[in-house]
Design a protein around this nucleic acid. Sequence first.
RNA 1: GGGGCUGUAGCUCAGUAGGAUAGAGCAACGGUUUCCUAAACCGUAGGUCGUGGGUUCGAUUCCCUCCAGUCCCGCCA
Length: 604
Amino acid sequence: MQVIFKELTTNFEVILLESLIKNEKKEEFEKIRKNLINQPSKEEFGDYQCNICLVLSKIYKKSPREIANRFVKKLKANKKISNLCEDLEIAGPGFINIKLKNNILIEEIKSNIKCPRAGVPLSNKKNKNHLRKKVVVDFSSPNIAKEMHVGHLRSTIIGDSISRILELRGYIVLRLNHIGDWGTQFGMLITHLKDLYSSDLKKIDNIKISDLVEFYKASKKRFDNEKEFKKRSREEVVKLQSGDRESIQLWKLLCDQSRKEFDQIYKTLNIKIKERGESFYNPYLKSIIEDLNLKKILIEDQGAKCVFLDGMTNKEGKPLPLIIQKKDGGFNYATTDLAALRYRFNKEPDGDNATRIIYVTDHGQANHFAGVFQVAKRANWIPEDCEVNHVPFGLVQGIDGKKLKTREGETIRLKDLLSESIKRAKEDLLKRLENESRSETNDFILNTSRVIGIGAVKYADLSQNRITNYQFSFEKMLSLNGNTAPYLLYTLVRISGINRKNNMPEDNINSESISYSHDLEWKLIRKLLKFDEVLISIEKDLMINRLCNYLFELCQTFNRFYDKVPILKVEMSKKISRLTLCALTEKTLKLSLELLGIESLERM
RNA sequence: GGGGCUGUAGCUCAGUAGGAUAGAGCAACGGUUUCCUAAACCGUAGGUCGUGGGUUCGAUUCCCUCCAGUCCCGCCA
């Protein structure tokens, strides 16, 4: 319905401007045009509302209702507006409630049914060469030789969903996995590896580390306790960074084995992402220093090369530095992040030619990114018309409100968490089958519980406002009531049920005869038509929970309709009209679940 | 000490480019099945929107004070 909204806004603006000119207040136009037409604060107020008369009352020094009367008269005289609107009603102190004509809404429904994106328009934004804009989404980013945990889960799920939504809107999306594959920890890992497998070093393929996490822990323990080991580890870092052949081989071995673990998780979660770890940017680090030097913003302090940040201070009240090069000459993550940012905005072939970079990390890194962005801006590395966004998210907590841990106090492995969810979904399903005396094939049971189990975990995360911490509860996310994946899937299953029972041949459907009379039909129509506006708002603020909220409301609206309004056992024209609503609900839901990375089901 | 984020019903959370009587789910209580999956639907009850100021015709929303929780603050990422 975005198109209608825009047309209404344009024509309202014309009338507003005429009025202002007539009253010699033209200069106010820019200030007050912004929120000329709003979403209604309540459904019963109509399709949109206009609150401008209360503002005009101040400017014209007349009562808002008096102004509203005149304004509405002018609006009604406008042909384009009267073609769209059934009624412009003045309410309360001077609000104008806008109700659209039924046939306009029905035309929208028909057009959305035909549209493969269910009415969501493609973004018309293009880059300077009039090509589709490219967005880099940086998400997931686990560390080599460490287990993925719930913190990575949020980044992965949110980043994936953002990518999918931007793709639907027509952007070219480059999903990047900025994995931690470089840095000082590799010194100890490689040294430990060399000690353990000294005899196999010639035949590297023979080395199989059974448990990388245990391996990491053992290395760390030695690093912290053995002086000699620590020394060798440090030397190993230098070797690695200077490109020593054997060190590089062992580094690759560690990365490969880790990658296998990650890929399993990504397969389970159905995540597509391109691995481009920190090591990729090594060749570009030196020029970061050079360029910052050239621009005279790099300052040496206590042996380290820093950029001092504006508006940020440390404990002593002095300007906070962003360390670009350590006193030992090594680079750290700020350097890599700057190099990555610059590369992504650079033109091809030495860059990605992006116009927007989105970083999905926990909000603990907010300061870090604020610093990095500030330096990038001062160094002029963010081109005109381009933007960077940090998309922060809160912690995953247990029921106790503390960081999610096992009973033993250990970090929960992501793969254990996912299989637990599937297991619980399966138990629920089996119980239901028994209660209803249903029998299903083993394949059905496995697939259904997998889709529900994974979907529930994803949806629980995405439906939450990402900025706040959220409490992880299998019980809630798998519940069949409330704003959960199973509730949405169930709604879809109901529609599939209707389709199965419907024996009417498809070519009987004549969309010309569509008409609606029931109040619940109209509520569903209006809800369906909000879909595009929801997605467009998400493109700006990247709050995925808006989509989930919308879907929950859509399903509630549909279920009320389904409960009270017969669909199949009615006369032909009503049946066709109602089946059309079912079809669009189904399409919207399926598409949305896809955007959330959740699979659909026909039966459950 | 500085900065970020959070504080809304018993619990978990929506809602904030200012708008009319602040919404869901869970838990509690009550109701609905000749019909498409009742895994649903309907109703009742539950609120000083952390505190105190300010701006405004109008503030949960914007600004300031204070309180509470949490995260970050020089060579880890």
